[in-house]
Structure formats: C-alpha cells, structure tokens
C-alpha cells in the first residue's frame, strides 16, 4: 500500500473527522487545532490535491455561499483506499508504541 507522507496523515485524518464538512478552510482549522500550531492554507491545499491524485480522497463542489463572494466550496471525502491507508497508519502507530504503557503522552 502507498505510504502516507508526514503531513498527509493529519490532513487525511482531519477530512475523516470532519465528515461531510471537509473543505479547505475547515481542514486547515482542524489540522491547526490538532497539531497545536498554525498551518498554512497553501500547504493544506497542496496536500489535499496530492491526496486526491493518489486516490485517497474524492471531491465534489458544494453550493455557492454569500460569505465567500458566491464561490462554491470543494468538499472532500475519504475513498475506500483513503480509509484503508488511515487504518493502516493507525495500526502502525499503535505497533510503534506497543509495550510503552509506562510512557505517558506529553501533556497527559
């Protein structure tokens, strides 16, 4: 299976978390919140495009909204391949930390 890049994983996870409301700005806000640092819109945009090309995401255009000057949003959704990649990344992450129960996550 194709590997997820370092920044692709949080972006893919944000799309999964936002379920149906994942578009550029909401994904950027979600990633910034989870990462605890400001993430640039351009970086998120490029990553979303790349994930779509890799087949992890699919997109559809929404309705125009006044707050965006009548421009439509592009909503992203996970594909089956995207879900599988996210699930595999989770398993790998758990495997990496297996046996380290004594170690608490920072801030816990």
């Amino acid at each position: 299976m194709e590997e997820l890049g370092k920044f692709e994983l949080p972006v893919l996870a944000a799309v999964a978390r936002l379920r149906g409301n994942a578009y550029g700005v909401s994904v950027m806000d979600e990633v910034s919140k989870r990462e605890g640092r400001e993430v640039g819109y351009g970086t998120v945009h490029v990553t979303l495009d790349r994930l779509k090309v890799k087949g992890f995401l699919t997109s559809k255009m929404g309705e125009p909204t006044a707050e965006r000057g009548g421009r439509r949003k592009k909503f992203y959704e996970l594909t089956g391949k995207g879900e599988a990649a996210l699930s595999a990344a989770w398993s790998r992450h758990e495997a990496d930390f297996a046996g380290l129960g004594w170690l608490k996550p920072a801030g816990a």
């Binding site: 550029g24 255009m61 439509r72």
Partner: peptide
C-alpha cells in the same frame, strides 16, 4: 476552473 473557484473562495473566507 473548479479548483480555482473553491481555492479563491477559501482564500477569501480566511
């Protein structure tokens, strides 16, 4: 065109 519209909308909003 579709990407440009959504991207400009996102940039405008943010």
């Amino acid at each position: 065109p579709d990407s440009a519209e959504s991207t400009i909308g996102d940039l405008s909003e943010h």
